[in-house]
Design a binder for these strands. Structure first.
Lengths: 228, 228
DNA sequence: TTCTAGATTTGACCACGTTCAAATAGTTAT
DNA sequence: ATAACTATTTGAACGTGGTCAAATCTAGAA
């Protein structure tokens, strides 16, 4: 995302210093209460050095989220190699993101800051974040890869699951129940429901519904490329 | 929301001046490019006067959104008095918000800025905005008021429609099609689908699904008070 | 070694959102 | 009219995110 092009070894070190200082301070004091000056000082550099590596304070959060995504891919990748059970796969896909971020909910919230501003480079639905969105969706695509499914569902499901995850993530941020049990139960419930509906999807009576949904999403340009 | 308690007449005038100056400049230059200094100057006061009436720059957007909400309530209220047709009512409820904000999409986006930060006073899902959320939901409650519906749906539907509206609003912000046709078609399609599903809801085979959904939302504390 | 081009680091600086204590205007009671 | 109290207005100041041109460092070529 930022300065990930080839950099000098020393540069890479500095970048890591700044990043981990930022994380530490964000966790300790919260995002807004942490100044770039403090981050830089903690990393042993001057403020403008931080801006050499990260274009903005929020970009540090973006980098954090990319790390989380990478970790999720690793976790899920391992599990997908060892079990073929669809439900286990999906449950893991969802819960892994919760597990990875449960202690950083205040950081995570910042990811959503520019949701409503399409032109902002960090808009979580904008073109600037398309790649990480693709990766996020890919996890679900991998999760259902082994299933026998009609082609349309093969496209639709990962998208729907990604959307579900986004929604649950917001819920996760607001969830004040112990260890966010509420959100986790919701995730499980939503998955069960999805699987149940998946079983029902072939029913004749639901055929027109399913077709209608698909057409709707198609004309909304939500299906193929990266409209959203 | 802000300083709506009794104020002097002159104070009220000043407040209006500042608010309309803000709107004008936001529309002209965009939210971020407009400085509080500029707003105040345009309103003929000094910068800190603006802060006497609005606690932050974003609070001006909040005030804008409240105005939109009020306008929607008026529009829908009128229509609900003249037609009993459910679809017309729901279509109006959705489209009115689009119509009212179509020229202010860049302003509208700011409303979502603190979606991921529950403790921020302007978090669009937080306690600080509960009242406007209630009003927003009330419109849909009014829209379906005349229908014969089981009690659970009477609670569930307005909530679902409010959520639909929020989702569509985000889509609306990203929609670069002429006059946001795409989002509008999506809204109509989603409504059709909802009505179709409503017709199907009594079907025996769907009974367990419906029950499952309800239980899920219940345990997520999404139904009654203002958990979210 | 010296030169050069690029990567990195620096400190000075700016713009803007926000705060605040003090000044002023308005209103009400005596 | 005066005093007392509140609502409003003001200007000065602060902190922070971000920019920039210049300085320094690094590594390879001559």
């Amino acid at each position: 995302m930022v300065k990930n092009e080839l950099a000098t070894d020393k540069g890479e070190q500095t970048r890591k210093q700044i990043f981990s200082s930022a994380l530490e301070l964000f966790r300790e004091r919260g995002f807004d209460a942490t100044t770039m000056q403090a981050i830089a000082a903690h990393a042993g550099v001057v403020k403008s050095a931080a801006y050499y590596y990260f274009p903005s304070k929020e970009a540090l959060i973006q980098a954090y989220y990319e790390n989380v995504q990478t970790a999720q891919e690793r976790l899920c990748g391992e599990l997908f190699n060892t079990t073929r059970d669809l439900k286990t796969r999906l449950v893991t896909a969802l819960h892994s993101k919760f597990d990875l971020t449960k202690d950083d909910r205040n950081l995570l919230g910042v990811v959503f800051r520019y949701t409503g501003e399409p032109h902002h480079p960090l808009s979580c639905l904008g073109p600037g974040t398309a790649e990480i969105r693709r990766r996020s969706t890919q996890v679900f695509q991998d999760a259902i890869a082994e299933e026998k499914l009609p082609q349309d569902l093969r496209v639709l499901l990962p998208l729907a699951l990604w959307a579900l995850q986004m929604g649950l993530l917001v819920m996760f941020l607001y969830d004040d129940s112990e260890n966010q049990q509420r959100t986790r139960r919701m995730a499980d419930g939503a998955l069960n429901l999805t699987l149940k509906l998946l079983g029902l999807a072939k029913l004749a009576i639901l055929k027109p519904i399913r077709k209608a949904v698909l057409e709707l999403l198609q004309q909304a340009e939500l299906l193929p490329g990266d409209a959203l």
